[in-house]
């Protein structure tokens, strides 16, 4: 399973998303690769991703993509990441 953490530049907030997602996945007992992407590459990379995590702002700019998009409001709140990933992965 491949998860794409999308942010504007690929090194600030996206990195935080990746770190939080990795902690959350560990807690949920789910194996997945989390890759950081900037907005510029996100559309192309989304073709091979199973799930995208990003902010609500950037999700709107991203528009329609194949994988399900999970939006995170508080990037340092692990509970939010765990709850939203759990919900998104439940349907798989």
């Amino acid at each position: 399973m491949k998860i794409l953490a999308v942010c504007g530049m690929g090194l600030g907030s996206g990195l935080l998303l990746r770190m939080q997602a990795e902690k959350a996945l560990k807690q949920l007992g789910v194996q997945a690769d989390v890759e950081v992407s900037d907005m510029g590459s996100a559309r192309a990379l989304s073709a091979t991703a199973d799930l995208i995590i990003t902010s609500e702002e950037l999700a709107q700019q991203l528009g329609n993509v194949k994988p399900r998009v999970v939006t995170i409001t508080n990037f340092v709140n692990l509970a939010e990441m765990v709850a939203k990933l759990e919900e998104a992965l439940k349907d798989r």
Partner: peptide, 19 residues
């Protein structure tokens, strides 16, 4: 260009640009 997405948590902004 990308909007205020850098406000990563309530009351907290992570200002940055590309290398």
């Amino acid at each position: 260009s990308l909007g205020p997405y850098i406000v990563i948590a309530p009351g907290v902004a992570l200002a940055h640009a590309r290398p």
